[in-house]
Amino acid sequence: MGDGIYWPTFFFLLFSALACGFALAVVFSRNVVRMAFYLVMSLASTAGLFFLAGEDFVGAMQLMIYVGGTLVLLIFGVMLTSQKQFVEMKTPAGQWIVGLVTGCALVALLWMAAFETPQWQPISRAEAEAVAVQPTATPIGVALTNGRVDQLDQPDETLRGGMSSYLLPFEIVSVHLLVVLIGAAYLARAKRRSPSAAAPG
């Protein structure tokens, strides 16, 4: 049988096909909730790609934040506010064109980026199997709190100290998200006429 099928490649192709297919389904679907469902499948397939690349942490993160959090909240919002049962969306022609242009530009950019990366060549099977699977969460955690793991071999102590951690940017992003959340909640508050104040006045 020789080499047979190289399973990681097979799964890579499978997951990327799923991700792309469901992404297209999102674009062509009209029902908001179905759209959300396709998006979940697409994002879950992307998470599969991460797992395949050995980035368990990022994969799980993708599942937890996008699928478990964002999309659930999206559907929750639709359920709470929809005027009728199944919300349909129609895209006007103008938006199609804008979307198409933006999409094409993005694809072109990604295409260029992908082919300018020097490692973008298939590695041999022996090489692939030789790559040891490293813990993925530890470097991230360490980088967040006290040091950049990618700079461990930096010989200069002072330089190493300077690149201490991502904690401050992380905190800034967190606070920013919190502000956005509060702002959204404020905007979502509907204004209604108070019956008591309206009656005498």
């Binding site: 368990d56 799980a60 599942l63 937890m64 699928v67 993925t136």
Partner: peptide, 20 residues
């Protein structure tokens, strides 16, 4: 999976999606 705890919690959160 070397981030097992995280993975299990993330996947368990997906069950709600079916219910919704």
């Amino acid at each position: 999976v070397n981030t097992g705890v995280f993975f299990v919690l993330a996947v368990l959160g997906l069950e709600v999606f079916g219910v919704i």
